[in-house]
């Protein structure tokens, strides 16, 4: 036993998963550059047709955020089929300046042995063998798959390779699935090739409910998310005890600054995590969930023990 206090986890802002207009995105990151978040992931990860910012715009933004003291990570697309998408991916991976977060094995392949890289929510790391294999290729940070529990995390952490940082998705609508089909275009009775960029109208996606009115999913183009917002703030003590290095907050159209400020205050010990979590949860349109963390169905919200 030693008495060294574990380092405080860093706060990371995940990539914006929705389609926001250019001005909205730039204004959002202007706000974020002044927020207490440590790491910012940039880039379009869901749909290649969303081009509010081009690669050069993203790289300029990355420089500005770096100058403001943020660690910038470039996130890759999760589902790549077309050659044009691979071409953009190659440029992203060879940027030579910022760490890249792989969300598909194509990116892992391009980054292996080239530069240190991070593993995003699109990469399946369910055990320590897989993590070690990817560490040997240059992975330096990984994120727990959102469906895995604290028990699985503890097991993986016990065998974690040296120098590997562990990240956990602690706040936001959970990314649950990717498809060839665009569900937003389907909702509007439009073919994907003529989607008319309708997802611009839904800054936090479209909510799916059962016919009894139970909201449970969010449609975001080709991505499906949870309708409930995952919030693990109340589990902060356990996250720290498990040696989690980075806490990821996924951007929402409203209230992201407040969420970051609340997590930062809890990390500084200025508020009780449980109470702060309850305050955040009170304003959620479809409630909070933490079931995955507890080893249960993801949509459940289980009270702390």
């Amino acid at each position: 036993m030693n008495n060294v206090t574990p380092r405080l986890p860093k706060l990371a802002l995940g990539p914006v998963l929705y389609y926001w207009p250019r001005e909205t995105l730039l204004a959002f990151y202007e706000q974020m550059s002044a927020s207490p978040v440590d790491i910012i992931c940039l880039g379009e990860t869901v749909c290649a047709k969303r081009r509010s910012l081009n690669i050069d715009d993203w790289l300029d933004l990355a420089e500005r955020l770096t100058a403001a003291g943020k660690e910038v990570v470039l996130s890759t697309m999760a589902l790549l089929g077309a050659e044009s998408e691979l071409k953009a991916l190659r440029r992203w991976c060879a940027n030579g300046r910022f760490m890249v977060e792989a969300n598909d094995m194509s990116a892992v392949h391009l980054l292996s042995g080239q530069a240190p890289f991070a593993l995003g929510t699109g990469i399946n790391i369910y055990n320590d063998h897989t993590l070690r294999f990817l560490a040997d290729l240059g992975a330096r940070r990984w994120i727990l798959p959102v469906e895995l529990s604290r028990v699985a995390l503890a097991e993986i952490q016990a065998q974690r390779p040296a120098g590997m940082e562990t990240e956990v998705f602690v706040y936001g609508r959970l990314p649950l699935a990717y498809s060839a089909r665009c569900f937003t275009a389907r909702y509007h009775n439009l073919p994907k090739d003529d989607c008319q960029y309708r997802c611009l109208n839904d800054p936090e996606g479209l909510t799916v409910s059962s016919r009894e009115g139970q909201a449970f999913l969010t449609l975001n183009g080709i991505q499906t998310q949870s309708a409930q917002t995952c919030n693990l703030l109340a589990e902060l003590a356990e996250l720290r005890a498990l040696g989690v290095d980075v806490l990821r907050i996924s951007p929402q159209a409203e209230g992201t600054e407040r969420v970051i400020a609340t997590f930062a205050a809890a990390l500084r010990g200025e508020c009780a995590p449980g109470e702060a979590a309850a305050t955040l949860n009170a304003d959620l349109p479809y409630g909070a969930c933490n079931g995955y963390w507890q080893g249960q169905a993801g949509l459940q919200q289980i009270a702390g023990c």
Binding site: L79, N124, Y126, E147, L176, Y178, S179, F216, A297
Partner: peptide
């Protein structure tokens, strides 16, 4: 399967059990 296989967590989100796990 409408979703990319290996990357669909819808089942565990509702039931706790998924193809991956």
């Amino acid at each position: 399967c409408i979703m990319v296989e290996g990357r669909c967590l819808l089942s565990s989100y509702v039931t706790g059990e998924s193809p991956n796990m």
